[in-house]
Design a binder for these strands. Structure first.
Lengths: 219, 219
DNA sequence: CCGATAAGTTATCAACGTTCAGTTAACATT
DNA sequence: AATGTTAACTGAACGTTGATAACTTATCGG
């Protein structure tokens, strides 16, 4: 047993100059997805950038969708780490919620393609669409669940806000859902209509956070 | 001058049994888009359902994107009519905003597929996505502006709220954007994750409206 | 009937995701 | 050192896609 899931047998040299072809592919795909979006990024172009043929890509990923989902999970784990950091360093529950919101929005805006794929993609190919966005699943290792887990953590944090004695205007679940919906609407709008003349971006982000934080806790 | 923009010269008979081929195409495309989404709906399948060949479709629409945009406008004109009704019957500015929000959410929830088509279709062709949904345009006859016009009307209504003397926490534009983003997040969430165990739907709708109305006007 | 034009066809294109069948490179064993 | 095995890879091809070109048919006014 190698203990090195996706690697070759130990000592084995590879064709390409890179050491882990899978990582090379992920990197190239990530660059291209970010440059041109999902649709315009073709398997052939990814392969070209890596320096291999298109079919070689299928040795590492079942299809284009699996490749993108692998990238999504990889990306969402970064957001999850940012939330870990907040939970470790921020004590005040209300401040935690705000910091979560800031991190969430920042993440969405700097990873629009991954955000789109996970949170607002109804046109995903059939097998993926059948399971919605995998939210109902309870297997955290399944591909594509990163977004759902992050959402659940916000609900948890707001639940702690309630437990810490802060009086809420709605049940904790409802507060969490409202807050997430607001942030999600904000991020979606920026992503889907980037050229629209929105008023100042930071004003909108802070405004959304203020509106929801004030609206959630009892006056 | 015929006054019948897309029609044939008066008295002219058509090949198909339908009277306006363009409408037939729109109807078939709408059904297929709603059944299978944008990507899975092919030009050939639309043509099949209408009973014509694929290239014939290009006699009526420049490309697949233009067809989609025509559908978007058609759908959103219905929402626009509902807003006309509110503006005619509701005098109080704050109440107008709330009623707008209710109508917007109701529209989204009762036309989830059309809403998806216009506001959260990330697999829309790249050139279309780059321009958002053409929100920046100021030509009201241009295709694809239906959603944008509705949004602008909210901003206008909130602007009147400001003009009527109610003090706002942010500029009217910003208030409108925040409010729309919140409602959009709400509708999107319900549409995209209908199976998620959300808390009570009406509680969330009213909660979102309360949160934003209270957050927008000065305490 | 005729010329014009609207409406539609077949044939075809390049590009896409993907699969197939075969080839090369690196190892373990003899 | 030759051999067999297998991972890694390639070129050619398949079936579809959106879209175009070139051509045909139907319907009209005159």
């Amino acid at each position: 047993m190698s203990g090195f899931a996706t690697a070759l047998p130990a000592g084995r040299k590879r064709r390409g100059e890179g050491h882990t072809r899978r990582e090379e592919i992920l990197q190239a795909a990530k660059e291209l997805f970010l440059e041109q979006g999902y649709d315009l990024t073709t398997i052939r172009r990814i392969a070209d950038r890596v320096g291999i043929s298109a079919p070689a890509l299928y040795l590492y990923f079942k299809d284009k969708e699996a490749l993108m989902l692998a990238l999504c999970d990889q990306t969402f784990s970064h957001l999850s780490e940012a939330i870990d950091e907040i939970e470790k360093t921020v004590a005040d529950p209300l401040e935690r919620v705000r910091r979560f919101g800031e991190a969430y929005v920042r993440f969405g805006l700097s990873h629009p393609d991954e955000y789109r794929l996970v949170f607002l993609n109804p046109n995903i190919p059939e097998p993926l669409r059948r399971t919605g966005h995998r939210m109902p699943t309870d297997d955290p290792t399944a591909p594509g669940v990163g977004g759902a887990l992050v959402f659940k953590r916000l609900v948890t944090i707001i639940g702690e806000l309630d437990a810490s004695g802060t009086k809420l205007n709605y049940p904790p679940d409802t507060c969490g859902e409202l807050c997430w919906m607001g942030l999600h609407g904000l991020v979606s709008a920026f992503i889907m209509k980037p050229d629209f003349p929105w008023s100042n971006r930071d004003l909108l982000i802070n405004g959304m956070l203020d509106v929801h934080l004030k609206g959630i806790v009892k006056a």
